[in-house]
Computed example of a mutant assay.
Amino acid sequence: MTRKSIGKMIDKVLLCFLSLLAILTGYSIYSVWSFGGVNQLVKTDAAIVLGAAV
């Protein structure tokens, strides 16, 4: 392998890594953003009392 081909290989690996990082960052941002619209309030007939063992 020549120096030029090694440099190109490093460039490709770096490009793949940065692309993967951008995709994962975008997915994380979308996941957090879309979770904001989810309503998780559930009606219940039970109450949880913490610290009642005193």
Rank of each mutant, 00 (worst) to 15 (best):
M1F: 04
I23S: 08
V13C: 02
Y30W: 10
I48C: 06
G7L: 12
I6T: 09
I6W: 08
G36T: 02
N39R: 10
G37I: 03
S19E: 10
S5Q: 08
T25A: 14
I10N: 12
S34F: 13
S5P: 00
V54P: 11
Y30S: 08
V32S: 02
K43H: 03
W33V: 06
Y27R: 01
A46G: 00
S5C: 00
T44L: 03
G26P: 02
V32C: 00
M1N: 04
G37H: 04
Y30F: 10
V32W: 02
A46I: 05
L20N: 05
T44Q: 08
G51M: 14
L24Q: 10
M9V: 08
S5Y: 01
G51W: 12
V38T: 05
V13W: 06
V54Q: 11
K4L: 03
A53G: 14
G36K: 07
G36Y: 04
F35A: 14
K43D: 07
L14P: 00
A47H: 06
C16Y: 13
I10E: 13
K12W: 14
I6R: 12
D45W: 02
G7C: 03
G36N: 09
A47S: 10
K4D: 09
I48W: 09
L24P: 00
L41A: 03
K12L: 15
L18K: 13
S19F: 13
K8W: 09
D45I: 03
L20Y: 04
I29Q: 05
A53S: 12
L15V: 02
T44G: 09
N39K: 13
V42C: 01
A46V: 05
L15Y: 07
F17W: 13
R3G: 14
G7Q: 11
V13F: 10
I29Y: 07
S31F: 07
V49C: 00
S31K: 11
D45F: 05
I29C: 01
G37D: 06
G7P: 00
T2H: 05
S34N: 14
L20A: 11
M1H: 07
K43R: 08
T2Q: 02
V42R: 10
S31C: 02
S19T: 15
K8N: 11
I6Y: 11
T25H: 06
V42F: 09
I23K: 05
I6N: 03
Q40A: 14
A22T: 15
M1R: 04
A47K: 11
K4P: 00
A47G: 02
N39C: 04
V49W: 02
V32Q: 01
W33R: 02
R3K: 04
S28M: 03
S31T: 09
I23R: 05
L15R: 07
L21V: 11
